[in-house]
Design a protein around this nucleic acid. Structure first.
Length: 119
DNA sequence: TTTTTGACTCTGA
DNA sequence: ATCAGAGCCAAAA
């Protein structure tokens, strides 16, 4: 491997966050705090938000990362566009809040098929 | 190394 | 429900 690929998985917080965000299924959402916790740094929600703003990896579903309690959070191109992207996946956003956030909330451990009761 | 920044979150008024 | 304040963390300056 060449040193040029130092952006690859190296155990850094940033890489951990990127890998997690990439796993969020379509039609589901995850909070900044959740991502931080999954990355092994509970409480680093703010740091996660900053990484989202960087958008270092195009193609990642950054729009699926929202605020605590289902708050829409922010977005580089505007929260309106973020809401539109979510709507396109079947996630309804009303008054800056994700409807049925509790059910659409995603966790790495359940992303597979642990859902015993489909929506 | 210290300071600043930012798509956060919780608590209390 | 809405707002201000404080706490927290990682990356960049």
């Amino acid at each position: 491997m060449t040193v040029a690929r130092r952006r690859a998985a190296d155990g850094t917080f940033r890489d951990a966050v990127h890998r997690i965000v990439r796993q969020i299924p379509r039609g589901r959402v995850c909070t900044y705090g959740d991502v931080a916790r999954l990355a092994g740094r509970p409480g680093a929600a703010r740091a996660v938000g900053r990484l989202m703003a960087e958008g270092a990896i195009p193609g990642l579903p950054y729009h699926r990362v929202i605020g605590a309690g289902g708050a829409i959070g922010g977005y580089g191109s505007g929260v309106a566009f973020k809401a539109a992207l979510l709507a396109a996946e079947g996630v309804t956003v009303r008054r800056g809040r994700v409807v049925d956030f509790a059910r659409l909330r995603w966790s790495a451990s359940q992303g597979n098929a642990t859902r015993r009761r489909p929506v």
